[in-house]
Each structure stands twice: as structure tokens, then as C-alpha cells.
Design a protein around this nucleic acid. Sequence first.
DNA 1: CTTATTACGTAACATTCATTACAGATGTGT
DNA 2: ACACATCTGTAATGAATGTTACGTAATAAG
Lengths: 222, 222
Amino acid sequence: MEFCIGFTILGSNIKSASKVMKTGNGKMGRPISFDKDAALEAAMLLFWERGFEGTSMADLTHAMGLSPSSIYAAFGDKHALFQLAAKRYMEIRAQYAVTALEEPTLERFLRALFDNTVAFLGSKGHPSSCFTLTGAISCGVDVEPAKVLMKEMRLQNEAAIKARLLKARRAGEFPKEENVDDYTRYLSSLLSGLAIQAANGSTRAELKRTAEVALRHLGIER
Amino acid sequence: MEFCIGFTILGSNIKSASKVMKTGNGKMGRPISFDKDAALEAAMLLFWERGFEGTSMADLTHAMGLSPSSIYAAFGDKHALFQLAAKRYMEIRAQYAVTALEEPTLERFLRALFDNTVAFLGSKGHPSSCFTLTGAISCGVDVEPAKVLMKEMRLQNEAAIKARLLKARRAGEFPKEENVDDYTRYLSSLLSGLAIQAANGSTRAELKRTAEVALRHLGIER
DNA sequence: CTTATTACGTAACATTCATTACAGATGTGT
DNA sequence: ACACATCTGTAATGAATGTTACGTAATAAG
């Protein structure tokens, strides 16, 4: 089973995942009759809510409004669908992190990072917490590719944070005595922790106040 | 299905979970031939590693060295076994948190909290990360009791931290302007974040340095 | 229209799931 | 010794799992 991630999470480098290999000659057949994006969105939301193992193909057929054969033809098997759902999550839902990365100064980056995270975790219309945690944090042996993918996505997020901190260091904004790797993991811990808080049922206001404590301890007053 | 937690996590109040209702008269039959504690320990480790949904009864029979009928007779169904495993985890493995709670001063409490957590997450011989996260953070609808149990355990841990902070406030150690609930959730976030770091593959040394950054930002120098 | 080609829904597939029925084994109490 | 209660391994249970075979529907090209 191939299971490599062909997309960088908080950056660009998003390769196309549609492996449509034109089997026959130039002739065309019956075209697809459903909205592929909408179907993938429904699958992504379900994986996000219940995780890989908690989501059955029967659940997916119901949520996507498709028959199994359509899903398999359009997205491949369950692992491939999960991978596409994860990619979609990053492209569509996790952009709040990218916008934070683009803030010009370190302080504005940190503030935006926490503000956007709180806004994301506290908003309605999607599962609480974060796909990279709920998708597959633990699983049976046959599902480990999904677990590895989630871990790689979390690590890529850390890499993006680290790159931003290095930029701040070059700009002279980052304290000399502070270790970039340690600080990166500290920030990553805080953000993961907020996602767990959301899973614990914290309201948006509570998340906001928790993030404010974090920012204050980071030396950022509001 | 009954699924209430009869034990308080970071405190006492641990009720006996052995619901051995003597069905017959006073007569005794064939006694159990296996070490119940060892079997439950094996189940706990497997649930910890793979989560509720990732652990099948077949996996459990193999890991516990028991036949299904023995497991069902001794521990009940899969949900009951999971609950007992969670209880055992708290009683046996999560005591490092209790010892931190008993530290006499706030500063020593915080230092012990992070030191013990790092020592726990970084030690070998058991899955990385924390049972309350890997056990069941997301799942199918029929497994939600397990998910709820994990959430309740995390919230009980927070309650224990809050109680300790309130004690510190009474002792005049806790800043007046700091909100206890917010600070509690902040600490909880940090600890959950460290557990995710461990799941990400952080080494003990890396966890230690990350915790040191956290302690420094908490105003505690080493 | 005819034909080629693909999409689609239904139903089947083998396998695994949690759970239990059954029969024999092993002990306790008398 | 006996009778009895409980344990324990095997095998079976029905349901659910992910996946695919197959017949039919729908479009495109000639």
C-alpha cells in the first residue's frame, strides 16, 4: 500500500492527487453526476468527527450520498479517501495558520497564531478539536498509515512554525538565548493543548482566555 | 449500558469495581487460574497503545493470554474491560500527578507537575503519550461511552489542578489578578500538549527542554 | 441510431467483529 | 469418595466490516 503525503501542510507544494489514468482510448463515457468537492467535504467532516476507525464505509456512503462503487471509483479505497480528506482539511480549513505565518513581525505572528487558533477551534459548523488529533492518534496495526499521516502533518506544522521563528531570528526579533527547536515545540504543545481543551468542551470564551494566559506568559500583553 | 465512572482520578474515592454477585448459594466452584491483575495490565497497555476501537477482542485474548469466555466472566464486555483498564491506568500509572499535587508550595507543585510528566512520558516500557488521549479521542457513535469516559478523566485531572491552585490562593501564593479557572486550563493545555509531543516522537530530552521553556514562562527558573 | 465507454445502484463477497452456547475441566465443600 | 459450582477452551453466533461483481443507466463519439 502506497501511503505518502504529497502535500506540504503549512506551505505550498501541494501536488495533485487525482491519479486519473486514462485507461481506454480517447473515447469518453458517462460523466460523473455528483459534486466531487461536496462529497469529499462530507467525508472530511465525518473523519474529523469520528476518526478513521470510527468512520465506516457505510457511514461515508450515507454522508456523501454516494454508493460504494462511486466512492471507490472517484477516490480509491478508504485509506486514499482519508488521505484526500486530510489534504482537503489542510487546504480549506487550516489556512488560518498560514495567514498567521505571513504576519510581518514575531509578536504579530504569535498573536495571530493564537487568535486564529481560538477562532477556529471555537467556531461552529464543524467538529471541535483538530483533524490531526482526532483523525487517528491511536489505532490498530492495519490502520497505522493513517496514524503516521496525522503525525507527519503535525510535524510539518511544527516545521512551518520553526521556519517562521528562524525568520524572526534573522530579523533580530528572537532572543539569542532562546533555542528555536525548544521554543517551537513549546508553541506546538500550547496549540495542541488548546485543541484538546476544545475537545474537552471549552467554549470559545474559555479558549480565548486560556490563550490570553499563554500570550501573557509569552511576554505579549494585549 | 451502564457506563459511569466510579472512581475519582487524581483523588481518592476509588470504589471497588468487582461486581461479583454471588449467584448460587455458598458453594464454591473452580477457582480462577490466571493472574487477574496481570491480565488487566496487558489489556490496559493494549488499549493505551491502540485505543478502544483499534483493539479487538481477538487482540485482547492474545495479549491477556485468556480465552474470550474467561475475559467476559472476569471483566464483563469490552466496554467494562476498557473502563477497568482506564481505572487501573489512573491508579497505577498516573500517580506521578498525585505526588505533584502533594507538594507543599505552589512553585514546587508546578515544578513537580512538569518534571513528573516529562519523566512519565519519556519513560520506556509503555506506550508514549497519555491513555486519556489515545484511549478514545474520537470514535463511532456506538463507542461514545468510552470517549465520554476519557473526557471525564481529563476534566477530573483539571479539577484536581484547580483544587491545588485554590489551595495556593488561600496560602497567598497565587497572584490575585490571575484567574484560577483560566490558569488551570492553561496548565492543562500545556500538559496535554506535552503528551501530544510524546506521540509525535519527542525524546525524553526534548520533552524536558520543552517543559523547561514552559516553566520559565511560568516564572520558575531552575 | 449505433456503439463504445464510463458511472451507478444493488447485491454479493470473504473476513472480521463482539459475544455466547456448549461441553469438558478443575477445583471446593461434605 | 461424592456432588456441585464455577472456570475455560472451542466453536459457533449473527452482525458489521471493507471491497468488488454485475447488470443497467447515461453520456460521447461516429
